[in-house]
């Protein structure tokens, strides 16, 4: 049974700024190691365009962040629930598969949400995600 649904969009340019200036903090406080490992590989010395890679990383992270936020909306925790972004890990995007931990995970479990689905998409300027939580 459908228990929660969430949708979110993130501006790629916004994430690009964070990726360029705050990559270490993003990697250690918002995204998991596995999520970070899914970024496009570093530019090779034989001529890959570094700007294109930054754009691709920003798009990817925008989608992941949108999916985290969409999952949070689907879980619908109490507004003041203290959580960490890393407690919502996006394992796959299309279809969405995720792993929860911490207070957010406990709240989802308490609501009986056992199954997740959803999808993401990205344009040059926006990352978007819809996440659905079901009890069975």
């Amino acid at each position: 049974m459908l228990t929660g649904i969430g949708f979110d969009i993130v501006a790629v340019e916004r994430m690009r700024d964070l990726y360029v200036h705050q990559a270490t903090r993003l990697r250690t406080t918002v995204f998991s190691e596995a999520e970070w490992a899914g970024l496009p590989p570093a530019a090779s010395p034989d001529g890959d365009d570094p700007d294109a890679r930054v754009a691709a990383c920003a798009r990817h992270l925008s989608v992941l962040f949108a999916a985290k936020e969409a999952a949070l909306k689907a879980i619908a925790p109490p507004p003041s629930l203290a959580f960490e972004w890393r407690d919502i890990e996006i394992e796959a995007c299309n279809p969405v598969r995720l792993r929860l931990a911490g207070a957010v995970g406990a709240h989802a479990a308490a609501r009986g949400i056992r199954r997740w689905s959803g999808a993401v998409c990205a344009t040059r300027t926006l990352g978007a995600a819809v996440v659905i939580g079901e009890t069975t």
Binding site: V10, R14, M15, L18, R25, L26, V30, F65
Partner: peptide, 9 residues
């Protein structure tokens, strides 16, 4: 949400 992350950083 992303703005709050930005401000925090």
């Amino acid at each position: 949400s992303i703005d709050i992350v930005d401000i925090r950083f």
